[in-house]
Design a protein around this nucleic acid. Structure first.
Length: 258
DNA sequence: ATGGTCGCGCAGCGA
């Protein structure tokens, strides 16, 4: 199975790039974040014409998540579906593709440390951890991928000094991510790369992409039973180049599920 | 030149 995650930063603005990318990589599953569209504006037929089924959860303008699959999508759940009051923002969507339970996540940005949005981010991450643990036993195949808005460690930012005191690197955020890893999820990218300087997001401003000033905040977490079958991972930074890119690059994993 | 970007949606905010 080839699975990818990509924060597209508006599906409407990015559709030509997404179509081009799909036809090149032909993933079995593509999880998207920040579609910024409502469900009735999701261009499902465009994807169907390319052989993909798709589900979307969004209310327009901000956030919005989607899953495309050419190996089927079943048991779709929008949001946490944990019985508590549903989050007002569309940041989480689940589906089962070829027997693998998959969640696409757009973790809140947090704005700045201590901000009300930062507290929301930490609460959201804790709720995600509980949701993940209730979704499947850690011994079973489970993938949670997307824009976590967390750089797992200092290798994942271009200059740790720049980010002292900032969101995305704070100890509580990293601890929240670590608690999911402790439960049994693997940041599969790190199974293949030890180096720093390998990023998935670069600010549009000030030519940061061309200066190599980025962060790795788009993650594919999977349970060990899948991670041990992963055969390759890459961040397609070519997708960040050229005219009209998202500020995020897709992350792709190949898993031998035969 | 002394900042430098996008997207949404039409001002200014969020990232």
């Amino acid at each position: 199975m080839r699975l990818a995650t990509w924060n597209v930063n508006s599906l409407k603005a990015r559709l030509p790039r997404v179509e081009e990318w799909l036809s090149t990589f032909r993933p079995d599953v593509l999880c998207m974040q920040e579609t910024k569209c409502a469900d009735d504006a999701f261009p499902l037929m465009t994807f169907q014409a390319m052989g993909y089924d798709g589900v979307h959860y969004g209310v327009g303008r901000w956030n919005g998540v989607a899953i495309l699959s050419r190996v089927g999508i079943e048991h779709v759940v929008a949001g946490f579906g944990d019985g508590d009051t549903e989050d007002a923002e569309a940041r989480l969507l689940w589906g089962t593709c070829a027997g693998v339970r998959i969640g696409t996540v757009y973790v809140p940005n947090g704005r700045e440390v201590g901000h009300e949005q930062y507290q929301y981010k930490l609460r959201w991450l804790d709720r995600l951890r509980r949701k993940v643990a209730s979704e499947r036993p850690s011994s079973e195949p489970l993938i949670v991928c997307g824009d976590f808005n967390i750089a797992p460690d200092d290798r994942d930012v271009y200059d740790p000094a720049v980010y002292v005191g900032a969101t995305h690197v704070s100890a509580p955020e990293r601890a929240a991510l670590q608690s999911m890893l402790d439960w049994g999820m693997v940041d599969v990218f790190r199974r293949f790369y030890d180096a720093g300087g390998l990023f998935s997001w670069w600010d549009y401003r000030a030519g940061n992409f061309h200066k190599g000033k980025g962060m790795r905040i788009d993650l594919i977490l999977m349970t060990e039973t899948l991670a041990e079958r992963a055969t390759s991972v890459l961040i397609d930074r070519n997708a960040r180049k050229g005219k009209g890119p998202s500020d995020h690059a897709p992350v792709v994993v190949d898993i031998d599920v035969t």
